[in-house]
Amino acid sequence: MLDRAETPIGRRRQRWKRSIYGSFGVGIVALLGGVGLGFDLVGAIGYFLGVTVGGALCLYACLLGSVTISDERFADIERRASHYTLMGLAYTGLATFPALFVLEAAGEFEFSQPLDTVLLTFSALFLLWGAVYTTLRIRS
């Protein structure tokens, strides 16, 4: 019995995955290379093309392709990864920002522009999460 990607379908799945990951990889390398070498526009175009092609391949494979490249277990892993990431960010934010607010009120600390941006990004992320959560809860 063959229990690795040695069957035709296994090989097709591997080719799909390599094409998708490869496209994203080329886009990222193009961006980093372009920025690093001073060709920002070329890098950005390479990134756009890589991500667009990768995204299109991913959509095609998931919606129309005959090979299953993702299933309920991967969806479950993604849900758990999102949960742990959000919880980590939430606890980090809750442990950090209130303390900084107190320190700022006491005149011991001043929010810098980058930290303000981080705080706004945090707030926007959790506002968006709350909106999505509320929508899903109402619909379920």
Binding site: M1, D3, E6, G10, R13, T68, I69, D71
Partner: peptide, 17 residues
């Protein structure tokens, strides 16, 4: 006498699952 891949195809999931 099925491989994991063959069973995966039969129930439309990945071999890893």
């Amino acid at each position: 006498d099925l491989s994991q891949e063959e069973l995966a195809v039969a129930v439309d999931v990945t071999r890893q699952t």
